[in-house]
């Protein structure tokens, strides 16, 4: 075995274990802040796996989008609503945990079965390495143009929805029920927290 191949194998084992144990930690830890930070670690390890597969552009995009945007926003949300309160104990928590654990184990068994029974074509297509950036660009502007644009419209809709939810004072009445909007929320959005009152 050459040095490069063994390095690759060690890296794969390391990244794989980080992904597996990191995601277990994300699910099982009771401290939500730890879960969020571990999620960032899992995203980084996945980016590392992409690097091992010679897909450097995808790896960098993974870091930029998932670690830099998604995970930071999750952390932001957690820290802005950082209430120190104990959760109300739910009835039959033990049975619920067992049930969800059983379902997850079943799903895992199913996936493992699929993994074993599928005839994978090995080795797969040859990685194109640095040319991948150009290839992705070509695809995005030709045969994947419609899905790409649809995804951006979906994001735009989500953004407008978030703005409407956050700034209900613009509407005056709830869109769904037609009831007048909760006055407390309106007052909160109208109170300038940082801007001095003379300028508004």
């Amino acid at each position: 075995m050459t040095i490069a191949a063994s390095t690759e194998l060690i890296c794969f084992a390391l990244l794989g274990s980080v992904v597996i144990f990191g995601s277990l930690g994300v699910v099982l830890l009771s401290n939500i802040v730890y879960s969020a930070f571990l999620l960032g670690g899992v995203f980084m390890a996945v980016a590392g796996l992409y690097l091992l597969l010679n897909a450097s552009f995808v790896a960098a995009a993974q870091v930029l989008v998932y670690v830099g945007a998604v995970n930071v926003l999750i952390l932001f949300a957690i820290m802005l609503v950082n209430k120190k309160e104990d959760l109300i104990p739910i009835k039959g928590l033990r049975i619920r945990k067992l049930l969800s654990g059983g379902i997850c184990a079943g799903l895992l068994a199913l996936l493992i079965r699929v993994d074993i029974t599928t005839p994978w074509s090995l080795p797969g297509p040859v990685p194109i390495g640095e040319e991948a950036t150009v290839r992705i660009g070509e695809h995005l502007f030709t045969d994947y143009l419609l899905p790409f644009e649809l995804a951006s419209i979906l994001l735009l809709m989500a953004m407008i929805g978030a703005i409407v939810l956050a700034r209900r004072d613009v509407l005056g009445a709830d869109i769904g029920t037609g009831d007048p909007v909760d006055q407390g929320l309106i007052e909160k959005t109208n109170t300038p927290l940082l801007i001095d009152k003379s300028s508004t």
Binding site: A60, L64, V67
Partner: peptide
């Protein structure tokens, strides 16, 4: 790569 890496810093 630089842009992606600099987005880790806020974490």
């Amino acid at each position: 790569l630089w842009i992606a890496l600099s987005s880790i810093q806020p974490i």
